[in-house]
Simulated assay, not measured.
Amino acid sequence: MPAQNQPAANQPALDFLLGRRSHPARTLRGPAPDRAALAPILEAGLRVPDHGKLEPWRLIVLERAALDRLAGVAEARAEALGMAPEAAAKAISQFREAPLCIAVISAPVPSEKAPAQEQLLSAGAVALSLVNAALAAGWGAAWLTGWPAYDRGFMAEGLGLAEGESVVGFVHVGTPSGQPPERPRPDPAARVAWVSA
């Protein structure tokens, strides 16, 4: 029973958030969610704070053939940029080995009310919401970036992004091959300041 004047908690949701753990992308396997299973994850992912209701983001769902193509684009871009093979490999493999990936794109909208920074933060909220929705639905999920997320050539050639658009992250979704490893978590006492006056 909640204390007087305290709202009733959604304890299962709070327990989920307190225990959530992303899965390393390299541990995700097929099958990936099909379009019907992915629909509620996408819908939940888009329910984020959005000052001005601008929807300054969009999603690109990358299925197997698209991921193979992107691995090739990343490989060609790495060579064109003169990257050492070992520096390029991790980003290339994130596409080559992924069962499914959702590219979260920041697509800012001209606005006098919502600064560009707030719009970018809203896009970041979409990425985290997608991860949490996928985890809540029983899938494994991880939010990655890597150098392709910052390379204009990759963004244009691989994803068809317009000038002004950028990659916030690649959200990988698939079947977990085991429990994700636990890691140290932030200590609220060290990261939270209370101001009473």
Results as ranks from 00 to 15, higher is better:
Asp151Gln: 11
Val171Asp: 02
Gly178His: 10
Arg152Thr: 10
Glu163Arg: 13
Glu75Thr: 15
Pro7Gln: 10
Leu14Lys: 07
Ser177Tyr: 12
Leu46Met: 10
Ala162Glu: 13
Ser93Lys: 15
Ser122Asn: 03
Ala149Arg: 15
Ala78Tyr: 15
Val173Asn: 08
Pro108Arg: 08
Gln4Ser: 14
Ala149Leu: 15
Gly19Arg: 14
Ala114Val: 13
Ala66Gln: 11
Glu75Pro: 00
Pro31His: 01
Leu100Ser: 08
Ala107Ile: 00
Met155Leu: 03
Gly45Trp: 09
Ala114Pro: 07
Gly160His: 10
Trp57Cys: 02
Val104His: 13
Gly52Val: 07
Pro176Trp: 06
Pro7Lys: 03
Ile92Gln: 15
Gln179Met: 04
Leu81Met: 06
Ser177Met: 13
Ala9Lys: 14
Ala91Ser: 14
Ala65Phe: 03
Gly124Pro: 03
Gly72Ala: 12
Ala156Gln: 14
Arg21Pro: 10
Pro181Glu: 04
Gly146Arg: 02
Pro49Thr: 11
Ala193Cys: 06
Leu14Tyr: 11
Leu38Gly: 12
Leu17Asn: 05
Glu75Gln: 15
Leu38Asn: 09
Thr175Leu: 02
Ala66Ser: 08
Ala76Phe: 10
Gln11Thr: 11
Ala107Cys: 05
Leu121Phe: 13
Ala89Asn: 03
Gln6Trp: 04
Ala114Asn: 11
His172Cys: 00
Asp34Pro: 02
Val126Ala: 01
Leu144Thr: 14
Leu54Asp: 02
Leu128Arg: 15
Gly158Asp: 01
Val61His: 05
Val173Ile: 15
Asp50His: 13
Arg96Cys: 10
Ser22Cys: 05
